[in-house]
Nucleic acid binder design. Sequence first.
DNA 1: ATGAAAGCGCTAACAA
DNA 2: TTGTTAGCGCTTTCAT
Lengths: 334, 334
Amino acid sequence: MGVTIKDIAKEIGVSYATVSRALNDHPDVNDDTKKKVLRISKEMGYKPNDIARGLVRQETNTIGLLIPDITNPFYPQVARGVEEAAAAAGYNVFLCNTNWNKEREKHYIDALLQKQVDGLIMTPSSEELEHLTAVLKSRVETVFVSSFIKHADFTSVIVDNVRGAEMAVEYLIEKGHQNIGFIGAGEGRFANKERLKGYKQALENHGLEVKAENVRDQQGSYKRKSGYFLMNELLKLPETPTAIFCYNDLLALGAIQAIKENGREVPQDIAVIGFDDISFASLPEIQLTTVSQPKYDMGKIALETLVDKIKTKSKQAVNRRIILDPSLIIRQTS
Amino acid sequence: MGVTIKDIAKEIGVSYATVSRALNDHPDVNDDTKKKVLRISKEMGYKPNDIARGLVRQETNTIGLLIPDITNPFYPQVARGVEEAAAAAGYNVFLCNTNWNKEREKHYIDALLQKQVDGLIMTPSSEELEHLTAVLKSRVETVFVSSFIKHADFTSVIVDNVRGAEMAVEYLIEKGHQNIGFIGAGEGRFANKERLKGYKQALENHGLEVKAENVRDQQGSYKRKSGYFLMNELLKLPETPTAIFCYNDLLALGAIQAIKENGREVPQDIAVIGFDDISFASLPEIQLTTVSQPKYDMGKIALETLVDKIKTKSKQAVNRRIILDPSLIIRQTS
DNA sequence: ATGAAAGCGCTAACAA
DNA sequence: TTGTTAGCGCTTTCAT
């Protein structure tokens, strides 16, 4: 390996404990020796071995980040927030892409725990808990992003999904729409449930009926082709909705494609609203109306919250939900 | 901490070396004891401490991945390739987003080396080497993706940038364009140079002049707004090109926006071709003609090559360039 | 202010 | 087949 603390000690003729102290600028160390140690270690090109340090300190300054789909621009933005905040706080992050796959998620969690990560930030692939028992038992600090698990004692950073959905659907109603559809995916997901709830609330608040055939979230993924597929189902209905609220922007993009291929216009024939406000939503060719989430901030706050939990470990074990505000961005598809 | 190897040893009444052997299924261990160890450790919920193992084995089964912009969908795709191949090979990956910032890159490299990563995969922020000396000196196995450093002995996985650019520009020439512009960013970047080279070659091969004012790669970033800005410059020219070849899709998207806002049509007035084929390029509203790179495969191959280098360490230290083929995808912007 | 020594959890000779 | 022991590189008591 490289230069170790012992090499430096030998070189200077002090004990390696002294070198360690100097390097960590411990108070009880002679100024001259400290300077000397610092100088020599620079000269010799010494790099501390974080692995060894971690072993004795029982901490690794490393956290794991589990996201379900790195291909959906929403998550890279969150990841950037986590990442930059982590760098600022002196942490490194292991990125794991679960692909919404419970098995992979489980596998990754195990691997991360064995790597002794100090904490975990994750958007779980589902609300079911069994595959998360390892985390629960290990008691490693965890914060959830864009997700919330009932029955479990985790901190989470989320946007007000219900409110966001409500805003979108209310806007559609104000525009005169009476027959509004919902496209989502995976009933099991927290955020999906919440946005569906907001959708229903808005309809009910305005005396509108929630039609079962208008709600499509029983199958498919959160990707474009799924939006395309589900919209096509909706287009087969005797009374196709005149507006669609989609769980996310990717689904909305797929829905729009289906609508256009069906020979109809957006928003003239059918209006579409998404969720997330990924960067591509603002392209002149797209101009997608959508509910914006503070993606970067969610990541940043998640990391900061996690670090806080790690530092104050077991002291204040109060978990909480940090809820951020969404905002409706009106563009050309509604 | 959790359950350790010693706890298990105590429980069963054997030495902890035996437990270690059983757990790593070493040949020389009694079948019964092995079974017993396995059973008990499962019961006690034992998880090996990778940190400790790494310390003695002098390997961490961890690699670092440095990418310049996680916000550009090109990199997440590469990252996915790296990630999945890594999981398959039993490695974990530290993701670091450098934001094209040399200082951050340097900082991350240091951090990764201190974490004793077994290898590095990176797209460096620039071709200059000084900030990479740490890597060079540490002799940690490294493979470059989508980049190639002259004067240095690294393996890299790249697409044939020259050929890709040539294909794009030749196609434009065949379509009758005589006045073709280039939009790039950061002259210092390898890939930028290569694509510019391909652009020039294609022009020269067809007896067309390379006009300095048509080449815009001296400033700006690789992002959309930069393409927008540079295209606006081109639009001010007395003879605005009738076709533009862009370093990447993001720049192309920005250029298209500028063209449209200028009251001209794509491709009727000005044709645009990008590079990368990010997923959004295929949206019906975008239909961007572009040079496709095998993004996922680049990541996968990079990881596999790296692992190979790690395993055969110092044996076959021959570095090479792995060059993949690009393909021109003709859509509606050309 | 410094040194000696223990130990973090594990693997790997070397003995037995 | 199993146990003993040293040691990976570092931090941290406890002495001095």
